[in-house]
Amino acid sequence: MDERLRETLSAMMDDEADELSVRRLLSHGDQEEIRGQWQRWQQVRDLMHENHGPADAVDVAVAVREALDGHVRPARSADGVPEAPGGSYWRWPVAAMVVMALVIGFGAGAGWDSQTVEPAAPFAMTEPADDQALMLSAAVEEVALQGLDEDQLQQMRQYLLEHAQHSSVGAGRGSVGYARLVSAGGGY
């Protein structure tokens, strides 16, 4: 696999590949090799986040093509996007990238901790949040971002932005402040 394809693959893991390069990747001769690389990286990443994703079981190429061709796979587990055992949130990077449907708020909570504490009563909003709603601790209830609607996410993002703008950028930490700002504003 050449460096460019490797880069695309890496970008896909970070939700950042553009459509053209993804298509190029998909037309690469040795799909087996690409799948292998994807799975190895995915495993490293899952290890880091302690959620053992279903990388082994998924044919990346098929799902990616579907996403590119407009068969939108919602980010949520509702209709067959494989979900990791143990309830950790499996996001679908390319679908997220291409469809932009994921780019509500913070990528629908993709960047947020779903820490390994025991599941607890989820905060129910527009629809019942599933087992991704976890408690931060016994004392502080965690809001399940997946259950929030667009306006609520927008409001939360606004708070994060204002905080980042006024304290972090100004906190005498220079670049860290910018980074926090971009992170709060983007989510992608």
Binding site: W112, D113, V143, L145, M156, Y159
Partner: peptide, 18 residues
């Protein structure tokens, strides 16, 4: 008109509690 839930979320070191 906008109702917000009660509770905390966090990303990295940043907490938001409402």
């Amino acid at each position: 008109s906008l109702k917000m839930p009660t509770g905390a979320s966090r990303v990295g070191a940043t907490t938001i509690y409402m």
